[in-house]
Amino acid sequence: MSKMTILLVEDDTSLAELIATACQARGYALTHAPHATPALAVLKAQHFDVLVLDRMLPDTDGLTLLQSIRQAGYDMPVLILSALGEVEDRVQGLQAGADDYLIKPFAFDELEARLLALVRRKTNTQEILKLADLTIDPMQRQVSRGGKQIDLTSREFALLMYLYDNRQQAVTRKMLLENVWQQQFHTSTNVIDVHISKLRAKIDKGFAQSLIHTMRGVGFMMGVGDE
């Protein structure tokens, strides 16, 4: 995939600069618009893979801007950034047509992982999927490794599919909780890690090459190669 292009609409300029620096370091092209009017202008001039909108902007509400963007026919994925502690805002954001939602302050890794998941081309579930010697048949819901059949529960299968969809890039625990379990709550335990280690015991145990990796401080990654 070529360089990911991001449009960030954020009125806090110094935060935008920090995000831009981080993006540059990871090789993404970020354009910053301080509020809605320049954002709409720059959208006309240039294509973006993904949009990051602050919920509260000086000239308009982030959700209103999102609606005008959608009405103008842009269909790229949108991630909304919002202030702390506003449980009900998430639902409103997703209802307004956002694809993901992140609460400030956030870890850059979390933002990066979510943006990558958003722009990722969706896996074709009609064909047999392969990763190293792992084979997944999404239609039959069958998984095998090295020719050996692996029995997974339906939730383990969903977890594996989500990891596979985002293979070679990190997914955070919160992303797994939201996308595999469809839960919004905050957890103070390692509830996700426990499920990952159960899945790992089925997928990786007894094989020389690990396919599910722990990314310290970020989350997990499925893939071949470096740990």
Binding site: D12, S14, L15, K104, P105, F108
Partner: peptide, 13 residues
């Protein structure tokens, strides 16, 4: 939110 978000971002980088 603003200073905390910035603080976290700065520390990360």
């Amino acid at each position: 939110r603003r200073p905390l978000t910035r603080l976290r971002a700065r520390l990360e980088q």
